[in-house]
Design a protein around this nucleic acid. Sequence first.
DNA 1: TTAATCTACAACCAGATGGTTGTAGATCTG
DNA 2: CAGATCTACAACCATCTGGTTGTAGATTAA
Lengths: 115, 115
Amino acid sequence: MEQPTDEERADLVFNALADRTRRDILRRSMDGELSVSALARSYAMSFAAVQKHVAVLDRAGLVTKHRHGREQLVRTDMATVHAAQRMLDGFEAVWRARIDRFTDVLTPTHQGGAP
Amino acid sequence: MEQPTDEERADLVFNALADRTRRDILRRSMDGELSVSALARSYAMSFAAVQKHVAVLDRAGLVTKHRHGREQLVRTDMATVHAAQRMLDGFEAVWRARIDRFTDVLTPTHQGGAP
DNA sequence: TTAATCTACAACCAGATGGTTGTAGATCTG
DNA sequence: CAGATCTACAACCATCTGGTTGTAGATTAA
């Protein structure tokens, strides 16, 4: 199947981050030692529900699973967290670009930007 | 009604960002000059659909609306974009804290961290 | 004033989402 | 081996979501 585009990855990542439980799982999994059932014990919901949340994080690339015997250890992938930060930096960049374009009009150093 | 908690704001902001159309509206609205109907003309969907997307961005605080005659001008609120960046930085901070806690155990400069 | 434009909002629909329970396969432990 | 634990996955359900159309109120333009 096709590999996801930037926009598709943004969809997955921000959607995964848009849930309290998932953000908490993400924080807890930074130790990289917690099994799915260990995580599940922390929340007032079924094991299957937590399993689904982990699956959403996994699909977004925010977390990876590593089998260790019968349990599945969850570890957050900071690279994807950083990717999310860069996505927001992208907005910042667009914003600054418009500011620059604007001040450029106001300060005609060498007049006539567009032909 | 109650003002939203940090987690509630995170829910709203990340959820708002988890949609391609909304991210695009956010970028376009950095000029702060586009009316809802002007925005709507850019997308292959009804005016009402775009109106709903703007409403989601508005509820998240990512955008503000300003009446100008009969049209409603949309402007992105960079402060909330920055708030989102800080939320991600928060994850980063948790991660680094765990790293520090870990290396602290490995390098007992003045042994016995906890009493 | 009348017509056109912009907005708001309700009602509706199909599909996604977040939860549940139940079943079954692997793996560890006694 | 037998039992307990961990995981995977299907089926189900209520609610949310992203889209539609339609109606109505304001404001501008002719």
